[in-house]
Design a protein around this nucleic acid. Structure first.
Ligand SMILES: Nc1ccn([C@H]2C[C@H](O)[C@@H](COP(=O)(O)OP(=O)(O)OP(=O)(O)O)O2)c(=O)n1
Ligand SMILES: [Mg+2]
Ligand SMILES: [Mg+2]
Length: 1065
DNA sequence: TACATACAC
DNA sequence: TATGGTGTATGTA
């Protein structure tokens, strides 16, 4: 039959192409690239199709096929028979496309002079593929690519960089050739088997498809560039980029029209666009703005997962459920009528400063009218100015009140509006049932747009079908090219060529592709796992003298050592990276006997590695343009310590945890900066609980009380960058603030918060006449009055705080009042004297006590509501907070943290640049929403979990979520208890000694059992409810090609080491 | 464990 | 004149 199609074809290969093993698929070499002779490529591809046809015609005899054939996911009609399904694979157009491509590539190979070109050679410039403009970026459609590539070519031709790129291009071409050979060697029966295996896997994926989550990916538009434009509005209408003449970090959308983009050298950008303005980076600014953005994100998903300074994933499923209960007030955003900063008007965050006042204003009017006290009413209005900012003293700008609806689109629009109001920058978002799709969506309507894929299988499939594979995160230029060589351009093609992919790629990659073509991705947003390596590298003008090379090496080793110490890490494997002036990169590694962070030891290892390299090419000099030093096989010392201590660490962590809850749930706390967290968390150790809140407040207040000045913009909320020494200038200064300051003991102290010195205008609140906001506010007030602080209101953060404040203060406003800004809730409070103001502060502080209310109380609520309450029960992963864990005394740690801004330039600079992993705002609460707020395990749906590891790393504390319970916490002190982080049993009373003893006992048990398990090499255990059945060893299902299995395995390893060292030390 | 490669931002 | 820095994952040996 085969011969009847292609009588001239080679006989089918029956053995493994790699090792010639008799097996058609030797296992070891599955997924290996092998060489395909170009002259047979076209033929071979036709053969593959013939093979498919062969299957087609053989179907009657193929029982296996009959049994395992899974309905074509791209088949709209479920009753369509399998023959049609197979025919759909034989896409004629695609076949032609492939043949064409292979033909062209043959020509390329046949003609060495064309070796740097590919199939598009004759239409495009002769610039090699890997150097062509990468227009897979928003804002780069409709460009004259040909012209741009010509410019790139002319700017690059002949350079060392260019020559090295050519070398790499050739290597890639070789890989493609190898792939073709492998393709040729695939036999008829292998293909059949491939389809069967693929369909099995696809069916499993399909069965576990989860459309129940709403995942949002949010990404700032032209982030660095946008920050620079905000800081210097003169750049706004000009093409600009951030970086230098050597390299650009990003460009604004204006510049993208010229082809100027991230990762392009500045001098090429200039050639593409002579008017291009290139501004240097200000990482401290990006970090600062990033934190502001994250504060908004946390309102929607406190457990969001930042991927870099400018983007994050959120699971908004829960928010959408809660949103139904939100009042109009809570769904309203105060939006400036004009964008940009003003010299004369208030630039504060109106939603933080003004919006609560609007409500309070309404509330006080309501109070007054109820009491028929018109005098009071007038008086009150005077104090509650909604025209002048109490913080900066400037008039508020004109604003609109925009109320958002209930739908996911509305919510995300609201979130983006809040970001824009808070930062002055726009973001784009994707809304989809999983992270993979959400990521694609966020790019679709960029900039300043959003796109949603409804959680419906057909919608998902329709979206994915014609989507170019390159759009999927994880498929880059090389993968795209390799897939193109197989005729795979779109996600649908991944399905159609699944039999080939099965044979040509590793199980991991194949699995990844199959998930993509089904539109399936991860439905979990996970916190970052522990870092696995840390490094520092630098590009410099050529160095070739050994002395200088060693000096550079020592410098880098010292810097790395500093970084390791800063993060309380030690490591065992030292690697160096060198890049020659020819751009050739090498890495060399050496594993030490012991973990270290010692600069001398690191240098000794690095130096030796370098020495060998120098010697290897002697007598020629080793001419380098870059050197780097890396440490891996890390030991996380803080984790280790955590196990050694018990109660102090525990209490401390609870403090940290609680603080984070506050930070993310209390909008009034939202301006705190993550650098401060370390200091905060440590202070808890030796403070009473109340005092630890004072500490939080203090730091918070410090941020607020800073008045930064700028020549370019005026905004009291934000630090201003220091042009001269960006990296040394740190935003976070207020570390050494005196805690006692928060307690206002006299008028002088109070001056910081007291705001009656600011002239308050008469009541002329600027609510839009037609706005329904007033009604919303009134409804809320009614709720407060009638139902106490219960239904409908209790989910409101701002409102509930407000309600509390009012109870404390505004109900006794008959006498002359002064306005103060509460350092805890950040609200403007009217009090007749300091005692009252202090009372208010006390109440606010008490709201944040970390002991939770009795759980029984909650379980009385009806099921419907219980679900909601359960979802609010917060499970905190102490492990994730471990970076704050330290044995050091408070003072030491505080000073250490506080000295960050004085650290070496290199160090600070790196910290700024480190996007996500080193960012302390990543160290957030781990909330598992699936487990009714009890014990949380990490997302193991895709990954096996060691039971012992769970118990080890998931010391969890059950706490109330302050977001949901601020107002329920009024009487907290009456019934509090502690929950053992090990056994999770309630321990009545708050006697820390008793509790300490209990935890000690539990910890001992835990450690012993862990050791036993490790020694037994406990098998990996899949997560209970969400386990996925996968064929072969393909237990991966996250969005990256990898899933996280490797990650997990690593983590287990790390933990074992940690435990070992626990016993060693 | 060592090294190279791909990828993201 | 001039093509970055940090980190992760994977495949292979
Ligand atoms: N190769 C790169 C890519 C990005 N970045 C930095 C600068 C970007 O501003 C920031 C965010 O990256 P994005 O990919 O999100 O790009 P932008 O935000 O600049 O543009 P947009 O998201 O609008 O496409 O990361 C970088 O330094 N180097
Ligand atoms: Mg972006
Ligand atoms: Mg981004």
């Amino acid at each position: 039959m085969w011969d009847s199609y292609f009588p001239f074809c080679y006989s089918l290969v029956k053995n493994c192409g790699k090792c010639n093993s008799a097996k058609t698929k030797c296992g070891k070499h599955r997924g290996h690239w092998s060489i395909l002779s170009s002259t047979t490529a076209t033929l071979q591809y036709s053969k593959r199709i013939a093979v498919m046809s062969d299957i087609d015609s053989q179907e009657e005899n193929d029982e296996d096929w009959e049994d395992t054939k899974w309905a074509d996911p791209y088949d709209k009609s479920p009753t369509k028979n399998k023959m049609d399904a197979i025919r759909s694979v034989l896409n004629v157009t695609r076949k032609d496309k492939v043949n064409m491509q292979l033909t062209q590539e043959n020509q390329v190979e046949d003609n060495p002079n064309l070796s740097e070109s590919d199939s598009k050679t004759r239409e495009n410039s002769s610039l090699m593929n890997r150097m062509r403009l990468n227009d897979n970026k928003a804002g780069m459609d409709g460009l004259d690519k040909e012209k741009i590539n010509q410019v790139i070519l002319e700017a690059s031709k002949g350079s060392r960089f260019y020559e090295n790129e050519r070398k790499k291009e050739q290597q890639m071409n070789k890989r493609i050739e190898e792939q073709k050979i492998k393709l040729q060697q695939i036999t008829e029966s292998q293909l059949k088997q491939g389809i069967i295996e693929a369909d099995k896997l696809l069916e499993e994926f399909e069965n576990t498809r989860d459309l129940s989550k709403t995942i949002v990916h949010i990404d700032m538009d032209a982030f660095y560039a946008a920050v620079e434009m905000k800081d210097n509005p003169a750049l706004k209408d000009k093409p600009m980029a951030v970086g230098g003449m050597s390299m650009l970090s990003t460009s604004n959308y204006h510049a993208r029209k010229y082809g100027v983009r991230a990762a392009m050298p500045g001098f090429i950008g200039k050639k593409l666009c002579p008017e291009l303005i290139i501004v240097p980076t200000h990482f401290d600014r990006y970090t600062y703005i990033s934190k502001q953005v994250r504060e908004v994100l946390a309102e929607y998903d406190p457990n969001f997962s930042p991927m870099s300074l400018d983007e994050a994933y959120l699971d908004m499923t829960e928010h959408f459920e809660k949103r139904f209960h939100l009042s109009e007030y809570e769904r309203t955003v105060v939006c400036r009528k004009t964008d940009g900063c003003s010299k004369t008007l208030c630039n504060c965050d109106l939603n933080l400063k003004l919006k609560p006042l609007l409500l309070q204003h309404e509330l006080s009017k309501h109070n007054s009218s109820l009491s028929n006290d018109t005098a009071d009413k007038t008086d009150h209005s005077e104090k509650l100015s909604t025209t002048t900012c109490l913080l900066c003293g400037r008039p508020y700008p004109a604003y609109d009140l925009v109320t958002f609806g209930m739908s996911p689109d509305d919510s995300v629009n609201e979130m983006r509006a809040k970001i824009e109001q808070k930062t002055g920058l726009t973001a784009s978002a994707g809304i989809a049932p999983n992270t993979m799709l959400a990521k694609v969506c966020s790019d679709k309507n960029k900039p300043n747009g959003q796109y949603r894929i409804l959680p419906d299988r057909d919608t998902v499939m329709e979206f994915i079908t014609d989507l170019p594979t390159r759009k999927i995160s994880g498929i880059g230029k090389v993968s795209e090219t390799m897939l193109n060589a197989l005729g795979v351009y779109t996600c649908k093609d991944l399905y159609e060529q699944r039999a080939l992919l099965y044979h040509l790629y590793s199980p991991i990659s194949f699995n990844y592709f199959m998930r993509i073509c089904l539109g399936i991705g991860s439905t979990f947003v996970e916190r970052d796992s522990e870092r696995k390596s840390i490094s520092t590298e630098r590009t410099f003008n050529e160095i070739s003298k050994p002395v200088e090379l060693f000096a550079k090496c020592e410098e880098l080793s010292e810097a790395l050592s500093e970084d390791l110490k800063d993060e309380e890490l030690k490591g065992k494997t030292v690697s160096i990276k060198i890049k020659t002036v020819e751009f050739e990169v090498k890495t060399r590694a050496h594993t030490l006997k012991d973990y270290t962070s010692d600069s001398d030891l690191i240098y000794a290892a690095a130096k030796e590695l370098l020495r060998v390299e120098i010697q290897a090419i002697a007598p020629n000099p080793l001419r380098l343009r870059l050197m780097g030093v890396r440490m891996s096989s890390l030991l996380h010392q803080n984790l280790c310590k955590k196990k050694q201590n018990t109660i102090t660490g525990f209490i401390k962590r609870m403090g940290t945890v609680k603080q984070k809850q506050q930070e993310y749930s209390d909008s009034a706390m939202s301006e705190s900066e993550s650098e401060s967290k370390n200091a905060e968390s440590i202070v808890y150790q030796e403070q009473t609980l109340e005092k630890s809140h004072v500490c939080v407040v203090t730091e918070q207040n410090l941020k607020k009380s800073h008045v930064y000045s700028s020549e370019r913009v005026e905004n009291v909320d934000e630090p201003v960058k220091d042009e001269s020494s960006d990296s040394e200038q740190n935003d976070e200064r207020p570390i050494d603030f005196d805690i006692s300051m928060i307690r206002c003991t006299n008028e002088k102290d109070l001056g910081q918060f007291k705001r009656d010195d600011i002239p308050c205008k008469k009541d002329d609140i600027k609510l839009q006449e037609t706005s329904t906001l007033i009604q919303g506010i009134r409804e809320n007030i009614a709720n407060v009055k009638e139902k106490g602080l219960k239904n409908g209101v209790h989910e409101s953060k701002d409102l509930s705080n407000k309600s509390c404040d009012n109870q404390e203060c505004t109900t006794s406003t008959n006498t002359a009042l002064d306005s103060y800004v509460c350092p805890v809730c950040q609200e403007c409070i009217e009090c007749k004297d300091l005692t009252m103001f202090n009372q208010h502060i006390d109440v606010c502080l008490n709201k944040k006590v970390f002991c939770k209310q009795n759980i029984e109380k909650r379980e009385e609520v009806p099921d419907e509501e219980k679900k909601y309450i359960n979802s609010k029960g917060l499970v905190v992963d102490i492990d994730s907070d471990s970076e704050n864990d330290s044995e050091k005394p408070v003072l030491v740690k505080t000073i250490k943290t506080g000295s960050i801004s004085q650290k070496t330039k290199g160090k600070q600079s790196k910290k700024d640049k480190t996007p996500s992993k080193g960012d302390s705002s990543n160290i957030e609460n781990k909330v598992d929403q699936k487990l009714s707020g009890q014990v949380s395990f990490p997302d193991c749906s895709d990954r096996p979990c060691l039971p012992s590891e769970d118990a080890d790393s998931m010391l969890s504390v059950k706490l109330s979520n302050s977001q949901s319970t601020n107002d329920e916490m009024e009487n907290l002190n009456s019934s509090k208890y502690l929950i053992c982080p090990v056994c999770f049993m309630e321990q009545k009373g708050c006697d820390l000694d008793i509790f300490n003893e209990h935890v000690d006992t539990c910890l001992s048990k835990d450690e012993i059992s862990k050791v036993v398990k490790i020694e037994n090499s406990a098998p990996l255990k899949p997560q209970k409810s969400d386990k996925k059945i996968m064929s072969k060893s393909q237990k991966r299902s996250l969005d990256s090609p990898s899933g996280k299995q490797g990650n997990k395995r690593q983590k287990t390893k790390t933990d074992i080491r940690t435990i070992e060292s626990f016993f060693n030390t």
